[in-house]
Each structure stands twice: as structure tokens, then as C-alpha cells.
């Protein structure tokens, strides 16, 4: 017996979740309806958060806030985001096909905690924080949010309501690249997001996050440490690739072997890094 409740406000949704902790939250449905294909009638209950207007907004400026219900297509097509956080838009543009991007949401992409989620790496390198709303509201750095495939720090009564990050500075640039078994509608075999800070022709700082190479989206701290501070014209790219390959822990699955993921992640990272450096300044006008 599947019950259905579609609150119009966040407070109603939160109140309902306190009472009905086995209820599944549905938004775009592009993951939930796949996971429960032909077994939807066995779900105890559904709460559709799709009518909660306050979760559908994008606030731009020095501090950026994206509501959990913002769709992939809205992110991919958003002119301000395209200009300031192109890596995030690239990630959103590579989720499924148009039909999936029109329904699938930012919140859904994160809460299902797929190691291959396309939005997680670009948000992670932006230093994003997720806002979880339950009996109280808490902010969790995205880096601490994922606990394993399909597992997050969320409590059963919490709703992911927002993702927040600061606008990258003028001397920062980002990129997201994805490797799949075909060019569209493919779950990533490996993916990488990079954000760089360039100062005086040096790589003053960088953050790297990879998807599909570990149980959770993975920051490559050692590679970051290796390359941080290097002169752009003397970047030790080959050493960076090797370090990155050494610090990831991919597995064998239907989309690729551990060895292949390790091999391909190196050049994928190098290309993302160079693209990110190339994007410094280009995206910062206005």
C-alpha cells in the first residue's frame, strides 16, 4: 500500500518525515523509479517534495545557493552558473539525456550517493556544503557527506534542502571531464573535476575530485599537494598523473576494471587540469 503526500512547504515536509520515517522522498523520480521498477507498489509511502517552491531557487552572488529541487537542465543552462562555475554545468549536462536532466534534481543526484554521480566532483572541488533539514538544520561539508555507495550521513528524518558554495575568485578556473563507455546516457567509468587558483603564473592552489574510482567521490589530496605552488610552465604533469593513479582505489565492475580506471584517470585528470587553467579568467567577467 503506497501512500502519497505532497507538501507545499518545507516545514510540512519536515513535520511529515518526523512521523513517517519509512516514507521515501521522491523529487524527480529518475533514480527512485528505476530502483523500484515493477515494485513501486511495495513501497510503504512516498512524500513528493516537488511542490516545495523554496527548494527550487538558485541564488547567485558571492555566496551561491542552489535548491535541492533545481534540475540538471536548469543548472546546465543557467547563464550565471555557466560563466562562474562551468565545471558544475558540464557535470549537469552529462547526466543522462534531456529527459532525465529535465526531471532529475541536484538533491537526488547527491542523496543517492552513487560514486559516479556527475554533480558530486564539481561541487566537492568548489568546497560545497549541503544543508540538511530535519528537526534542526545542519550544514555538512560535501566532503563529509558521502559514506559509501548509497550511504550518506543523513538521518532518516532529514531532507537535503540546499547546496551552498562561494563564487570562485577571478583567478580561479574549473573543469569537469567524464569517461564513459559511450558518449551519452552513460554512467561514468571515471570522472574528474578540478578547480585551480592561479597566482603570478603559479598554481597557487588546486582541488581535485574524482568520481567512480572509489566508494565515494574522492579528493586527491596528495596530487594536490604535489602540484600546489608549481610554476604553470613547469608543471610536473607526468608526476601528477602518477601520483593521482597511486592514490585512487578503483574497483572492477561492469563499466571497467580497476586497472583501466587507474590508467585512464591519469590523462583524464591532466586534461581537466589544463582545461581548468585555461578557464581561469575566461569565465570571470561580469
Amino acid at each position: 500500500m503506497t501512500t502519497y503526500f505532497a507538501p507545499s512547504t518545507l516545514s510540512k515536509a519536515v513535520a511529515y518525515m518526523q512521523e513517517n520515517q519509512t516514507t521515501k522522498i521522491i523529487a524527480g523520480g529518475t533514480d527512485l523509479l528505476v530502483a523500484h521498477y515493477q515494485e513501486l507498489d511495495r513501497l510503504p509511502g512516498l512524500m513528493d517534495i516537488g511542490n516545495i517552491a523554496e527548494l527550487k531557487t538558485i541564488t547567485t552572488g558571492q555566496e551561491v545557493e542552489i535548491g535541492a529541487l533545481v534540475t540538471h537542465e536548469e543548472i546546465a543552462d543557467h547563464p550565471w552558473l555557466q560563466q562562474h562555475v562551468p565545471a558544475l554545468c558540464q557535470g549537469a549536462a552529462q547526466v543522462g539525456g534531456p529527459q532525465i536532466r529535465n526531471r532529475g534534481t541536484l538533491g537526488g543526484n547527491l542523496v543517492h550517493a552513487s560514486p559516479a554521480a556527475d554533480l558530486a566532483p564539481p561541487l566537492m572541488v568548489l568546497g560545497a556544503v549541503v544543508e540538511l533539514t530535519g528537526s534542526s538544520q545542519v550544514q555538512v561539508p560535501l566532503e563529509e557527506f558521502f559514506k559509501g555507495p548509497g550511504k550518506t550521513v543523513m538521518e532518516p528524518n532529514q531532507i537535503l534542502t540546499k547546496v551552498k558554495f562561494s563564487k570562485p575568485a577571478a583567478n580561479q578556473g574549473g573543469a569537469y571531464l567524464k569517461l564513459g563507455k559511450r558518449k551519452a546516457m552513460a554512467i561514468a567509468t571515471a570522472s574528474v573535476a578540478v578547480i585551480v587558483t592561479v597566482d603570478n603564473n603559479r598554481l597557487a592552489d588546486l582541488r581535485i575530485c574524482l568520481g567512480s574510482v572509489a566508494p565515494v567521490p574522492l579528493r586527491a589530496h596528495k596530487t594536490e599537494d604535489l602540484l600546489r605552488g608549481q610554476r604553470l610552465d613547469l608543471l610536473e604533469l607526468a608526476a601528477g598523473e602518477r601520483q593521482l593513479q597511486a592514490e585512487i582505489s578503483p574497483i572492477d565492475d561492469i563499466r571497467g576494471s580497476a586497472e583501466y580506471r587507474r590508467q585512464a584517470a591519469g590523462p583524464l585528470f591532466r586534461r581537466a587540469l589544463l582545461q581548468a587553467i585555461n578557464n581561469v579568467g575566461v569565465t570571470q567577467h561580469g
Binding site: G97, K181, R182, K183, A184, M185, A186, I187, I254, R255
Partner: peptide, 16 residues
Amino acid sequence: TVNPDLSTYLIPTSLD
């Protein structure tokens, strides 16, 4: 069969 659906058994899309 370990890939009995169209997200794991891939056929070419228009972009391929």
C-alpha cells in the same frame, strides 16, 4: 546475465 538492461548493455546513441 550481469547486464540485462539498457544502462549496462549499451547500444549506440545519436552522439556515438
